[in-house]
Amino acid sequence: MTLRDLINRLLGRQQTSAETAKERLQLVLAHDRSDLNPELLMQMRREILEVVSRYVEIDMDEGDVSLETEDRVTALVANLPIKRARAVPLAKGETSESEEEADPADPVFRAKVSS
């Protein structure tokens, strides 16, 4: 945190263009380096969320599965806030009540209804 960052935060200003550039680059390079096709990445993300949510209730709005890169090594990072654990894991393909209320446009939801 620099003095400029602090002032910007206090004033509610957007971040500097250099910071934006850095974040955009890190994201695009993670994808370039992984050489994964975006469609497969989407599918993998959906399946990971599906598997995890059979065991624990996760906050779908806050959850994120993304690629990160550091020192030219790319990692798949899942950040999935847990609401609560399930007493009994759901069976494959089974959905919980709360998730049935989910927005049909949500890719996770669609993955479940189609399977």
Binding site: R4, T16, S17, A18, E19, A21, K22, L25, Q26, L29, D71, R72
Partner: peptide, 14 residues
């Protein structure tokens, strides 16, 4: 901070 810093570039490209 309107241009990527030197460290940003060297960190990213390693």
């Amino acid at each position: 901070q309107e241009m990527l810093a030197v460290n940003d570039v060297t960190d990213i490209l390693a």
